[in-house]
Design a protein around this nucleic acid. Sequence first.
DNA 1: ATACTTTTTGAAAGCGCTTTCAGAAAACGT
DNA 2: ACGTTTTCTGAAAGCGCTTTCAAAAAGTAT
Lengths: 350, 350
Amino acid sequence: MLLMNPKSRPPTIADVARHAEVSIATVSRVLNGTTPVQREKTDRVRLAMDELQFVPRHAARVLASKRTNTIGLVLSEISGAFFPPMLKGIEAGAHEAGYDLLIHSTKKEGPSRRPLGEHNTDGLLIFTDSLDHRDLHRLHNMNFPIVLLHQTPPDSLNLPVVTVENKDGAAMLVNHLIEVHGRHQIVFLRGPEGHEDSVWRERGYCEALEAHNIPFKPELIATGLFDEDEAFASIQKILLDGNPFDAVFAGDDDSAIGAMRAIKTTGRLIPGDVAVVGFDDVPFARYLSPALTTVRAPIEEVGREAVRQLARLMNGEQAQALTLMRTELVIRESCGCTSLSTNVPEEMGR
Amino acid sequence: MLLMNPKSRPPTIADVARHAEVSIATVSRVLNGTTPVQREKTDRVRLAMDELQFVPRHAARVLASKRTNTIGLVLSEISGAFFPPMLKGIEAGAHEAGYDLLIHSTKKEGPSRRPLGEHNTDGLLIFTDSLDHRDLHRLHNMNFPIVLLHQTPPDSLNLPVVTVENKDGAAMLVNHLIEVHGRHQIVFLRGPEGHEDSVWRERGYCEALEAHNIPFKPELIATGLFDEDEAFASIQKILLDGNPFDAVFAGDDDSAIGAMRAIKTTGRLIPGDVAVVGFDDVPFARYLSPALTTVRAPIEEVGREAVRQLARLMNGEQAQALTLMRTELVIRESCGCTSLSTNVPEEMGR
DNA sequence: ATACTTTTTGAAAGCGCTTTCAGAAAACGT
DNA sequence: ACGTTTTCTGAAAGCGCTTTCAAAAAGTAT
């Protein structure tokens, strides 16, 4: 193993050039493949790079080329069952496209008002409302590549969006409750104020009701905040108020757990007395008893697709204004269906 | 709102200097607070920066200062219940310390053998064995700040490590099984080959047996790969082989699910006939029936602490060679204890 | 006032790479 | 062989910022 002089600084492109007896420009060219270089020289350069263990200084390339080769993910908080698969998809997408991923949390901005990395990235993925409208406008005005995740653009800004078919998924779910199980008094638990996914799910809920001529009852709408305890409390309140219901669409799976707990507490049976369904299909949904009927969103694909759209933007191409990833009904037991393989994941037999 | 000439490129420090009628150096100084600057000039500069919406070019600072203000997280794959909280901790730690986070996946290296970001980060967090020993040696030799996560250094390299007390946690768990529930035939399900966490958990398992003079039986050791289906198969095999056992320490929670399924399939009762315990305390552990007794590792804290150690290294200070985060026994039902509040999370009453 | 500190400031030299630009070399045509 | 076109190549000019360095300004002590 080649030991390098401990005092010496890491090799630069100039060292490589000297070592390979070519010009700096030539080294740069074999590094980037921008211009053909004679075979023999290419080899010499490659060899030199290996021997010197040369690693190009990212900052220098960025400064000179104005391309960072990095995409930024802006988000307000890392949490929820939702986040990991999305990140996984984004990471995979970035990797595929040859970009690095810079994570920028906007939650309670640190000591130094560190500026958003516009110049430090080639494009930005913005999750939900992690960035305020002012910044969004500014970036949009300067024509900076941006893709929104799970958030439609404010003020009719023309920014591409990637999200899931919340409305259709919710409608499928509620239709199932109505058509297959004959439920008509369906509670809906809203997510956090302003949460777009929740808004669309509610819309799907309403459409399903309408489609079956079931009147919308405001007293069956409550707030679950996509949170277990909040949902628990909300369902308890509805029970206390004496509003009858035979099903709960909990808004998301976390809320569904809370709802189930609240219902069980009263001695009611799930799904006999009350059907409970969620949304998201988080990993533990199948382990609940009864196993939770819900809607699966291809979250990982959302992340991957968002990167793809962003890549198009960064290449100067047009991106799709709205990408809606299809959702899928996951029937288990909590709706009243009977699963043959209780608590057994589908993949079991593989 | 100040509209800028659309043709104009983003403002540079020179523009700010001109605008504020000071030198470039002065602008840099108020930007970094490196040297005191007259109050009045400071104000002028600040104003100019605001008006021009100046955002310093990251690359330029890095190139000039040799500090990237970024730490890199190197990992081979984003997955597992394990990952999200760890990332959350790391992100939080990085944010606190004023660093950005660059995620670098080494899984199936992309098209261009993109070099690891040594020069693009001030320090690296290396998760499990996402980086091969050669690179590790090289980085170590050049005295580059590195902290290992859940992996002790190979070849007695002197690199700081942050991980959890797997051995103690496992021992506590097995002790509980033995002392409280009188189990003596305890199956252990190993994790993936070479997985350090698994090795230590097994060691804890062995120590607990020894401490109670229970002979170690090789036929009670099997492989669960920290995977539900694999664990299912392994337990089935042990059952088929007719090796009697009255408890399963599943290695991790995922395996525990598989183990529970396999045991239930035979009609045996949990925990009556067989106690099952896991490790990790993933979110759904409490929702299983019976609720899973397991060990909670402060994963998020691991991430945060790792960043802290790395920060010390980057500041030229010494880091702690080994940081073991304490684990905690989480007693639920699957070990044979009876929980008063079945399936009800502790926080319920808040 | 004068000499000597101490505090602020600006000029200018890089940081390591990409990218014109124009010249050199090679390839081609006749 | 010579003029042209096509390929390759090197010199040099930045990219936007930090950081000496030394001079200028302001403050203190004599």
